[in-house]
Write a protein that binds this DNA or RNA. Structure first.
Lengths: 227, 227
DNA sequence: ACGGGACTTATTGTTGACAAAATGCGATAT
DNA sequence: ATATCGCATTTTGTCAACAATAAGTCCCGT
């Protein structure tokens, strides 16, 4: 009898992990608005768990900069802060560049094909105007070098700061305007295939830097707290 | 009457913060050896606190890669792993490069002088063969751009992964062999003073990459667990 | 002697309760 | 009416107990 060995790959269901994902996603998609107060007890009640795993999740989110805690006073969703987003964007760009640089030497043909396929889906989604699918395809594209470089530290840092960028994208741009031109992705693929690690890394960094103009528009349009 | 406003700058003494620092330092200086088992209760007894703040500290240390937890089974100090150290080193180099690149445009004369002074102390310590003081001066040197760039994400990431490198340095090299030539520091200062952000960033990255040879020697000499 | 299985033990994950502190409100005195 | 003092409430930080699970051990049967 095939006993369901569901614990083979994923170790064990941890409430704190579920809490982290749930709260993070709620912040990213705006369910929990910037500046909104976060109450341990309320969050626990919402998720049907106790305060402890909630607090551990909030701790991780604070390291990401998505949550701000004044000890003994209150916990809030971080207000939209241009500086913080720009910081996260710098770090994220650097990590993607690093991932590409380290991945190129060992990049297989299959992985290159995965990138090409993702970019094709990306292009198709853009033509259709399907923002959600485009974002997903873009994610898949950039996930290839990150997975291929097998650098755990890079993965950790990206896991930490990517949600900060996602929140901005989703709150301020239902369509991804300047970000991620298909041609740019093609160039990254070509440089990877050619084995030019430095060139590919720089191209990837430049690709992620295209978020920058969005930030300036954010800075003009919404100066953090409309005091 | 001058009421002691000791809480003006530092918010409030958090046990989890003390626990984090204590356990982190114990791992870095070898008091807690690689592979050693970490028991919540024991650590709490050692620090005179309960398990809760200890567990929060261990959570942060796990994100750094200094601690490894198998959920429901045990928690150990991460064994010496060349790959993990190399990963942390890549990320750290990239972060220092980023810090320098972003700091250069706004770098004041006073800050440049601080770097020069730190490098002078560094050189003097090296001549005396004072490894501890040299390491401290090296830290002070590199801390200037990190503080100047005011990038919170960079700070967070460095705070996370620098201890991984420190542990290797302290466990395997009482003297800092190849790392940190005074001349290299001088070159970084010169490029910063000249306003060459890109050049300074690359020089800083190269400086931190000098850790690489130490890792290969580690790979040869001690293959993780001497089974 | 060897293998298998149940039991004990030890450790982690989670829960609910306790403690301390800061905020907000209201009463009071001026 | 306003400012100040005091109290109640709320929220976070910490603690101690409970639950669940995995490892180690001992006993028993073959």
């Amino acid at each position: 009898m095939p006993v369901p060995q569901s614990r083979g790959l994923v170790s064990r269901p941890l409430l704190r992990e579920d809490a982290y994902r749930a709260i993070r996603d709620a912040i990213v998609d705006g369910t929990l608005a910037p500046g909104e107060r976060l109450n341990d007890t309320d969050l626990g009640a919402w998720l049907g768990i106790s305060r402890t795993p909630v607090r551990e999740a909030l701790g991780r989110l604070e390291q990401s900069g998505l949550v701000l805690t004044k000890p003994g006073r209150h916990t809030i969703v971080s207000p939209l802060d241009v500086r913080a987003v720009r910081d996260a964007q710098s770090v994220t760009s650097a990590m993607h560049a690093l991932a590409v640089r380290e991945a190129v030497p060992g990049l297989s043909a299959a992985e290159l094909d995965t990138m090409r396929a993702a970019n094709a889906r990306f292009a198709a989604a853009l033509r259709r105007g399907d923002a959600g699918e485009a974002l997903a395809a873009d994610d898949d594209f950039h996930a290839v070098p990150v997975a291929a470089c097998a650098n755990q530290a890079v993965r950790t840092v990206l896991e930490q700061f990517t949600p900060v960028l996602r929140r901005i994208e989703r709150l301020h741009f239902s369509s991804l305007s300047g970000r991620g031109s298909v041609a740019h992705h093609d160039r990254i693929i070509a440089l990877c295939a050619a084995g030019d690690a430095e060139g590919a890394a720089e191209a990837s960094r430049a690709n992620w830097e295209t978020l920058a103009p969005l930030l300036t528009s954010l800075a003009d349009g919404e100066p953090g707290e409309p005091a």
